[in-house]
Every structure is written in C-alpha cells, then in structure tokens.
C-alpha cells in the first residue's frame, strides 16, 4: 500500500496527464462509436503519428533550422495536429451515409499513414527508438509543462463536447430532424471533427497510437453496454477511461513488471470492456430484454 501511494505521489503529473488524455478520448469516442466511424478512430492516430514522423525527418534538414522561419516543421505537436486535422477533414462523412467505398478509403489512409510513420522516422537520427515512442507513447515524459499544454488543448475540447453534447448527438443520430428544427448539422459535424483531430493529435504524442485508439473506442463501447441514457453513457465512458488509464499506469509502474504504460493501459481497458460485455450479458439473461409492456406495440 505504501509502495502504491509512493508511486502515485512520484508519478502524479504523468498519471494526471494520462487520465486527462483517456477521459478526453473517451468523451469524444462516445460520438465515434455512436456514429459508427471506429475505423476513422483507428486511422486518425496513425495519420497523427505520420505527422510526428514527418517532423522527425524534417528535423534533419538545414532549411528547418533556427532562423529559417520554418522551425515549426520540427514541432511534433504542431505537425501531429496539422496531420490529424487534414485526416479528419479528408475522412469526414455525414453520419448515416455508410458504405464500403468510405471504409476502403479510410483503410487506405490507415495503411498509408501507418507505413509513413515508420518510414519517415527511419531516416531520423534516433531511428527505431522514436518508432517505439510513437506506438507506445511517452507517458512518463509528461511533466508539469506538458500537462499544462495538454490541459490547454484538451480542456476546451471537454468543455465544448460537454456543453454541446445534446446537439452533437442529435446532429449525428438524426440529422434530418435536427436540420428541420434549424440546427446547423454541418457546423456541428465540423466542430466534432475539430474536437476529434485535436484529441487524437495530443493523445498520440502523449500515449501512443495504440492507446489513443483503444481509449477512443473501448470506454464508449463499454459504457453503452452498461448504461442507459445519454448523460449516463458519457459519464460512464469518462469514469471507465479514468479507471483504465490510472490502473494501467500503476500496473505498468510496478517495479516487478516494468511494462510500457500505453500498451498496459490498453490491455486494462480491454479487460474493462470485456467485463462490461459480461455484465450486459448477465443483465440481459436476467430479464432486461426488449420492452415488455402493456403499452401499444
């Protein structure tokens, strides 16, 4: 117990950063699961990773050096954000229009970005060490200044999605009715994809591609199995994500294991999702099935 408290005290900034990233991914991820754009949720972290890879590659060229005016090309965060923004814009599709063509296009982007993120980093001085960081993340590298940066970007995303969650859901659940009532569904789509791009870009650099994707999808999917009603689903997703991220961190930080944080948190989140599926299965078997009521059918 003392060891655990000591670990929490020592890593409190990193734990807070990883929980913040997980909660933000989960809240935005409820919309990702609800809109059935999980494949986009897989592709965007890879696109952001390719942006980081490009920044590594460009760091080796003199034209991006100090005083050139192109120093921003070396910024991992900025390049990840630009890449994720471009990816979100390219993969944007109005909800309700599902088709094999769109999925194939998303898969092609995923493959291209996944390949590029490896190839671009290969040319950098640190090589495969950077690849490992992109995949597994650099959670332990979240110090106070980076935590403040994360909060600066992810705080507004959380605030925006919390304030507009009704309209964002309405615009994706039934865009035609929403438009009929004067809700600007195009604007809400744009806002959602902007939130998604910012979340993915910041989370990939902090926790890696695998963990970003896992926390974008699994907490929302688990919460939808456990809870009913929109407020409960969002709160549940945030809570499960915080639990998964914190538990994963503490497990990885155990000196007997010494595992990488991102993959460990991902594994814990998968276990939580599995448990949620089990609970739903038990609840359904105990009579929580389709509406049995005397109301008109």
């Amino acid at each position: 117990m003392t060891d655990l408290l000591e670990t929490i005290r020592f890593f409190r900034t990193a734990i807070a950063g990883s929980v913040l990233v997980a909660v933000c991914c989960a809240v935005v991820g409820v919309h990702v699961v609800g809109r059935r754009i999980v494949l986009t949720g897989l592709a965007l972290p890879q696109v952001a990773a390719a942006g980081i890879g490009l920044s590594f590659l460009l760091s080796g060229f003199a034209f991006t050096g100090e005083g050139s005016g192109l120093g921003w090309l070396r910024s991992h965060d900025l390049m990840a954000l630009l890449a994720a923004g471009a990816g979100a814009a390219a993969l944007t599709e109005r909800p309700g229009r599902r088709g094999a063509g769109r999925e194939v296009r998303t898969a092609a982007v995923l493959c291209l970005a996944g390949g590029l993120s490896f190839l671009l980093v290969q040319g950098s001085a640190l090589g495969m060490e950077e690849v490992r960081n992109i995949v597994a993340g650099d959670v332990l590298g979240i110090h106070e200044e980076r935590l403040a940066q994360l909060a600066l970007f992810l705080g507004p995303v959380l605030l925006l999605t919390a304030l507009l969650h009704r309209r964002l859901l309405f615009a994706s659940f039934d865009p035609e009715m929403a438009s009929t009532l004067g809700i600007r569904t195009g604007l809400h789509d744009l806002l959602f994809h902007a939130c998604l791009a910012v979340t993915v870009a910041r989370s990939v650099h902090a926790t890696g591609t695998l963990s970003s994707f896992a926390f974008l999808v699994l907490p929302g999917a688990a919460s939808m199995r456990l809870f009913r009603g929109q407020g409960a689903v969002f709160a549940g997703a945030a809570g499960l994500a915080a639990l998964g991220a914190a538990a994963g961190f503490l497990l990885a930080a155990d000196e007997r294991l010494d595992w990488p944080v991102g993959p460990t948190a991902t594994a814990v989140m998968v276990l939580i999702f599995g448990a949620a599926c089990g609970v739903r299965w038990v609840l359904d078997r105990r009579g929580g099935g389709p509406a049995a009521s005397s109301a008109p059918r």
Binding site: V33, G34, R36, P95, G96, L169, F173, D174, E176, M224, F227, R228, G229, Q230, V233
Partner: peptide, 11 residues
C-alpha cells in the same frame, strides 16, 4: 432510418 446503436431511452 435511425441507427439504434446509441442506448438512448425513449425520453
């Protein structure tokens, strides 16, 4: 035309 994936209550 409405996707029932989200566990909305009728309310």
């Amino acid at each position: 035309s409405i996707d029932p994936v989200f566990p909305f209550r009728a309310l």
